[in-house]
């Protein structure tokens, strides 16, 4: 008899590749997905209420620098940020690495950041991210 050892597991869902373009943009759902990403990638520096760390990591909550330019934020998430920046009147100069995220993920993440802790901003769509990525 042939004795074999088997490892079997379920086929993973391909849900992360679902298309978002056809449906009307659901900001709430996007923010919810973005919160998970925020916890994984951003929280350790920008902290749980987006308050940042004084003099080291800039705040995201009610941050003028953040809300001033949506495309700059997309670019910074994709390619990182380097050099001095002024946020709410204070200067910061730490390097942030770029993150390897999909268009959908960057849009989810920014929708969460731009609409939490007192922030209110227009939705960022995967298409917006795509155009900055190019």
């Amino acid at each position: 008899m042939k004795k074999i050892f088997v490892v079997l597991s379920l086929i993973a869902t391909g849900s992360m590749f679902l298309s978002f373009q056809q449906k009307p943009f659901d900001l709430k759902a996007s923010m919810k997905r973005g919160e998970e990403l925020y916890i994984s990638y951003c929280l350790s520096c920008h902290m749980d209420q987006g308050q940042g760390i004084e003099n080291i990591y800039p705040p995201l909550a009610k941050a003028d620098y953040l809300m001033a330019d949506k495309n700059r934020s997309i670019d910074q998430i994709l390619r990182g940020a380097k050099g001095e920046m002024t946020v709410n009147g204070k200067k910061y100069d730490m390097e942030m690495p770029g993150f390897d995220l999909t268009d959908e993920e960057v849009s989810d993440l920014l929708n969460y950041i731009r609409n939490s802790w007192g922030n209110k901003g227009a939705a960022v769509t995967p298409a917006d991210v795509k155009s900055v990525r190019k």
Binding site: F5, V6, S9
Partner: peptide
């Protein structure tokens, strides 16, 4: 996902 079988 990965399924492995070893030949006896």
């Amino acid at each position: 996902d990965i399924e492995v079988k070893f030949v006896n």
